[in-house]
Design a protein around this nucleic acid. Structure first.
Length: 151
DNA sequence: GCCAACGTTGGC
DNA sequence: GCCAACGTTGGC
């Protein structure tokens, strides 16, 4: 069954517009076990809220979908990459990524302030687990947010 | 740039 | 296995 997620990216590094340009992109660089485990749970066709973090303002910018399930993140093996992990080896990968495909950019960006004002979504992990960069979203939360965003 | 929150590491 | 130190995330 299709599941719903929220994934954070700093727009200075990779924004919804960057994904729109590329159409598909690997979601590399995740170095948190809980976030990794959520990515391992994803299946092709799952829908993703693309969240801009560390932005002004931060908030939800659009929608993507999973187009490839979890596979080893190559940056963990690359000494020259900032996400290099010396404990990982190609036969013993630690970190995984999925690939995302661009679906849409919201006509109405939904800032964090506005999200905080929607009473029906206050149990989102976004508010309770502030630092988790990959997190599940319930169908109800998905419906409310995508309706607000206009697409 | 600051700093609170919080996940990870490492000494014991 | 505890927990202090440390590093990172992310809002502001």
């Amino acid at each position: 069954m299709t599941a719903f997620w929220l994934m954070k990216s700093e727009p200075e590094v990779f924004s919804i517009d960057d994904l729109a340009d590329k159409q598909t992109s690997g979601w590399d660089g995740v170095r948190n076990y809980q976030a990794r485990n959520f990515m391992k749970d994803m299946t092709v066709g799952d829908r993703v809220l693309f969240y801009h973090s560390n932005a002004s303002p931060s908030g939800i910018a659009g929608i993507a979908e999973v187009c490839r399930t979890a596979y080893p993140d190559p940056t963990q093996f690359d000494k020259k990459d900032g996400h290099y992990d010396p404990k990982a080896a190609p036969d013993k990968p630690i970190w995984f990524q999925v690939d995302l495909r661009f679906v849409s950019k919201f006509p109405r960006f939904i800032a964090l302030d506005e999200l905080r004002g929607i009473s029906a979504i206050q149990d989102m992990m976004l508010f309770r687990r502030s630092r988790l960069s990959v997190q599940p979203v319930t169908p109800q939360q998905w419906r409310i947010i995508t309706k607000r965003g206009g697409g």
